[in-house]
Structures are given as structure tokens and as C-alpha cells.
Design a binder for these strands. Structure first.
Length: 217
DNA sequence: TGCCAGGCCGGGT
DNA sequence: ACCCGGCATGGC
């Protein structure tokens, strides 16, 4: 079977299993960008607490985070862990957003995707996964997001080498899928759902894996 | 009770 | 070009 067929089969299998997920959990593009930074190596439940703190304080806007003291921001996002570095990283992002685009995500995302990706990667605290999450889920641009679940699940089924780099894994998807926002969005969401709910172990294969058909290829 | 979560950076080889 | 320690809270 061709890689292309396998990928589509996996996608449809997951979609049938979980149903449509319509990611990312977040009401606005700005909230999604904030969440993308806060969720770095962190359980989403903790991120929710931090975002709720920002919402309750009515601070979930670029201009407001731009003005707030970094120490105060750090206290608000404390539940998300790594709160001091993440406060810096959020500051770096909103500074970029405000000073380059007047705080308007719409203006930022009007830019060419590849160029914007380079600019995001140049911000300290934004690596490839965070940049691609922002581009895909906040900006509706077709960049496939690779995360720990993706590596774990796909290397376990021997579709990618375990030591593959981020861009190698990303290429595996983008070279074998149509470059569509809807597909990239839903596919990544399905992978995360699988990793969170069923394929949770780092070591053993899960017994009730919906992708078990891959084992008898 | 310890382990781990939707990374990333900086310094050392 | 890799490898590793540091960053931290809350849930199981």
C-alpha cells in the first residue's frame, strides 16, 4: 500500500472512531495563540486554569498582555507550569504582534504563510510545533502540526523512524496529503485524541488501538 | 508516591 | 549536528 493510502486510511479510521473534533479548544485566534504557548509540555487541564485566570481578569487581548507587568502575568498563568518562562514567551509573542501588526491577528495572518512561519520561529520561546499550531489553528494556514503523540504513534507503527526530526515527520504528512487546512486541522486533532484517551502508554502498544489494522499489513 | 503532560532554550560535546 | 539539564504545576 502507498503511504498516501495508508495515511488516508488512518485518518478515516480515526475520524470514524472519534467523530469530528473541530479543533482547537479556544474561542478566538488570540486565545489559541496563548494556549499554544501555555500547553508546551504541559497537560491541557492546567492550561485551562491559566486561561480562565486571564479571562476572569479580562486580559485575553494582545494590547492588555502587552501592557501588563511580566511578573503579574506570570502569577496569573501559574497553574500552567513553567510560569516564568512562559510569561516571557507570551510577552515576546504579544510584543511582536503589537509592534509589527498593531495587535491585529488579522493583519498578521494576511501575510504569506512561509514568511510568517520564519518570523514566528525567530521569536524566543516559539519552536516549530508552537509556530505550526498558531499558523494552522489560529491562522487557518495549511501547516501540519507534529507533536509528541504524532511521533509516538507513527513510529510505533513503523511509519516513521523513531529518531525522525520534526521536519522529517512533517514532510511525511505534507508530502502524502492534500495541503488542506480542514484536513490538517482534523487529522492532528484526531491524533491527539488517540494519544490522550487510548494510546497513552509511552512503552507498550495499547491493546484496543483503533489502528490495530496496521499491525497486519 | 512518583511520574508525566500537545516544547523550547542554552550550553556543552 | 546532537545531547542534556532546566523550567513547574496539578492530576492520576
Amino acid at each position: 500500500m502507498q503511504k498516501r493510502e495508508i495515511l488516508l486510511k488512518i485518518y478515516h479510521c480515526l475520524f470514524d472512531f472519534f467523530g469530528p473534533l473541530n479543533w482547537w479548544p479556544g474561542d478566538t485566534p488570540f486565545e489559541i495563540m496563548v494556549g499554544a504557548i501555555l500547553t508546551q509540555n504541559t497537560a491541557w487541564g492546567n492550561v485551562e486554569k491559566a486561561i480562565n485566570n486571564l479571562k476572569k481578569a479580562n486580559l485575553l487581548e494582545a494590547q492588555k498582555l502587552y501592557q501588563i507587568e511580566e511578573e503579574e502575568l506570570a502569577e496569573l498563568i501559574r497553574p500552567s507550569g513553567y510560569y516564568k518562562v512562559k510569561a516571557q514567551r507570551l510577552k515576546n509573542l504579544v510584543t511582536f504582534l503589537v509592534e509589527e501588526y498593531g495587535g491585529s491577528e488579522r493583519k498578521m495572518f494576511a501575510e504569506d504563510g512561509e514568511e510568517l512561519r520564519e518570523k514566528l520561529l525567530a521569536i524566543k520561546g516559539i519552536g516549530p510545533e508552537t509556530a505550526d499550531s498558531i499558523l494552522l489553528y489560529a491562522g487557518n494556514k495549511p501547516f501540519f502540526v507534529v507533536d509528541a503523540y504524532t511521533r509516538r504513534i507513527f513510529s510505533r507503527h513503523q511509519l516513521i523512524p523513531e529518531a525522525a526530526t520534526y521536519s522529517e515527520i512533517q514532510d511525511f504528512f505534507t508530502q502524502n496529503l492534500d495541503r488542506e487546512v480542514k484536513l490538517f486541522n482534523e487529522f492532528h486533532a484526531q491524533i491527539v485524541m488517540l494519544g490522550k484517551t487510548i494510546c497513552t502508554s509511552k512503552k507498550e502498544n495499547c491493546t484496543s488501538c483503533p489502528l490495530a489494522f496496521l499491525n497486519s499489513k
